[in-house]
Design a binder for these strands. Structure first.
Length: 552
RNA sequence: GUGCCCAUAGCUCAGUGGAUAGAGCGUCUGGUUGCGGACCAGAAGGUCGGGGGUUCGAGUCCCUCUGGGCAUGCCA
């Protein structure tokens, strides 16, 4: 199925060409992208095209004259009901009521794939997100990337991509040593043994709980073990928690990519050798440096510290080269703003090695800060200041977590107030949306009891104002999906979902299946309308990763 | 200091260079012997942080100022 906006753009393009051929418009280059705006179906129509205004100059005609020339040469299309020129030269279109009503059957035919279109069929996409090292629980800061990544993956799949979700992690290095030392200290503390808590150690209660678990399971059998043993234990336990937490909001990964594998395979050594050969790497101050200034960077970066350990940049370059070698047409990488400076070095490294980084698409989202008693504070895993995903799910539930975090545009900061989230969890848009779905299911139950079916329904009877408004909005879904993935901003989906649900509830108020004086044949048509509505509502909820309740 | 992000209704936030800037919550007024009222209909509420510019047209793009956030590691 082709997007309606694209179909409108095609028609307009053909109209301009026809007008030029007929001499109604002079010759000029037709713009690559013809703007088609979605409207609310009021005085400005369902779809509005302001192209005549921008063509006035090249056509050397008044915009209204350009609009008239386009309109006169417009090919016919079954989906257009009415067209008119308005204001200074807007082309406004209303969809055909009969065509709109017939879309009920089209939606039902699509079923669970409703709103999908296949412009990316045959392509492979990868979305890398979360990628937190196993040094603590998933917090609401990670949750933002998690929900965005998972939702984008859903949307990419809806346009035909085969999608893989990947989690990249490091279980070696300095941070994990501190994890091991922190846990060992807590374990010894719990046993009443002398201990040294590391200076940069993880201070959250979390490590006490893990230590308590170790005491319960192993007694004092580990008291003479050094930090690597504790690091391994911590890693296993924490990754178990991370997987469980993410699973609670419906997120599963296809791949867990371990940074260590890049050392084991020799990839990191090969990178350093190759960069030296190309003179993009050099020694200074006992460290190995990457000549980023050769790629537009402000200063060079360290690849291998004077201690002999590579920095995170080095394996990260090989990781992204690995992604490119796996042949993804699109590799999305979701990063918090506090990590945004790391990508330019990676991109430069990828280019230095002769690869084209253009399939890699980095999405930056701003921070989630914690608000307590009106004061904001930065979350810190080290200091133990954070709200975990588990706490949040316990308080407000999976669906509210996903909806709220997703509803903010990536560029906006989130000031997260757990008290406020709890207080507002009773009455909020999440329920407005899910309740619409519940109401559909309620109708189906009642209809089944009353023996009403939609067999032989005549959908052409669905020309009422309310049903038509809902259907117009429902048919925007493919365009919303397209726009959302083009912008890589999944919050557009939440805005749409609420609009759709509100239109549903207005419709439901007056468009009744089983009561009032609804004649039997109209009841059949309306029942089928609600079946289509349920399909669309379920589809939107599923794309957002939310559940589709039958009852609430 | 430099780079990136933000500032829109009382609060939380949407808004693709298009026409009269929207929603949720809160406030106020109404609504059901009826498919579930977790709902609906309506009202009030705005110098889109200030100033300049670009153009047929700016909340949206550019410059600048103010106020916040993040980054600016041989941490990740």
């Amino acid at each position: 199925m082709k997007l309606l906006t694209a179909q409108f753009a095609d028609l307009i393009r053909r109209a301009i060409e026809a007008a030029q051929t007929a001499g109604a418009l002079p010759a000029f280059d037709i713009p690559e992208d013809i703007p088609v705006d979605l409207k609310d179906g009021g005085a400005q129509g369902d779809y509005a095209v302001p192209v005549a205004l921008q063509l006035a100059k090249p056509a050397r005609r008044a915009p209204r004259q350009v609009a008239e020339a386009i309109m006169q040469h417009l090919p016919t299309a079954d989906f257009i009901g009415r067209a008119e020129i308005a204001g200074p030269g807007f082309l406004n279109f209303w969809l055909s009521p009969a065509w709109l009503a017939a879309q009920v059957d089209a939606i039902l035919a699509e079923g669970a794939a409703a709103g999908a279109f296949d412009i990316n069929a045959g392509k492979r996409a990868q979305v890398e997100f979360v990628s937190a090292n196993p040094s603590g629980p998933i917090t609401i800061a990670h949750t933002r990337g998690a929900v965005m990544g998972d939702t984008l993956a859903n949307l990419l799949a809806a346009t035909g991509y085969t999608v893989e979700r990947e989690y990249y992690f490091n279980n070696a290095g300095r941070q994990m040593e501190i994890v091991g030392r922190s846990l060992r200290a807590r374990y010894l503390e719990m046993l009443g043994e002398p201990f040294d808590f590391p200076e940069d150690g993880y201070r959250g209660q979390y490590f006490r709980w893990i230590a308590a678990g170790l005491v319960y399971e192993h007694g004092d059998a580990l008291k003479d073990k050094d930090w690597p043993v504790f690091k391994d234990l911590a890693e296993n336990i924490i990754f178990g928690h991370i997987r469980n937490s993410l699973r609670r909001i419906g997120i599963e990964f296809d791949n867990w990519f371990n940074e260590n594998s890049l050392y084991e395979s020799g990839a990191v050594d090969r990178l350093l050798e190759a960069l030296r050969e190309k003179d993009y790497a050099y020694d200074a101050d006992g460290a190995v440096w990457f000549r980023m200034t050769a790629f537009g960077g402000e200063k060079d970066r360290v690849l291998v510290k004077s201690t002999g350990e590579p920095t995170y940049v080095t394996p990260d370059i090989m990781y992204h080269i690995d992604k490119l070698e796996r042949g993804f047409d699109l590799a999305v990488n979701i990063l918090g703003a506090d990590h945004m400076d790391q990508y330019p070095a990676v991109a430069a490294g990828v280019r230095a090695m002769g690869y084209d980084p253009s399939p890699i698409h980095v999405i930056i989202h701003q921070a989630v800060t914690l608000v307590e008693g009106g004061a904001t504070q930065r979350m810190s895993k080290r200091k133990g200041q954070f709200v975990t995903l588990d706490e949040l799910v316990d308080e407000v539930g999976r669906d509210a977590v996903r909806y709220y975090i997703l509803a903010y545009k990536p560029d906006a900061h989130i000031n997260f107030d757990l008290e406020l989230a709890k207080a507002q969890s009773e009455e909020n848009p999440v329920y407005t949306i899910q309740y619409a779905h519940v109401r559909c299911m309620g109708v189906f139950r009642q209809a089944a009891e009353a023996g009403v079916t939609d067999a032989g329904a005549d959908v052409s009877r669905l020309t009422g104002e309310r049903e038509q408004s809902f259907l117009r909005k429902a048919l925007e879904l493919p365009q919303i999906i397209d726009f959302t993935i083009r912008q890589m901003e999944p919050h557009h989906l939440t805005t749409y979902a609420l609009d759709l649900a509100r239109l549903f509830h207005s419709t439901y108020e007056t468009v009744r299946v089983l009561h009032g004086d609804t004649p039997p044949d109209l009841a059949k048509a309306r029942l089928r309308f609600y079946k289509a509505a349920q399909v669309i509502l379920a589809r939107v909820l599923t794309l957002m990763g939310m559940t589709t309740p039958d009852r609430m």
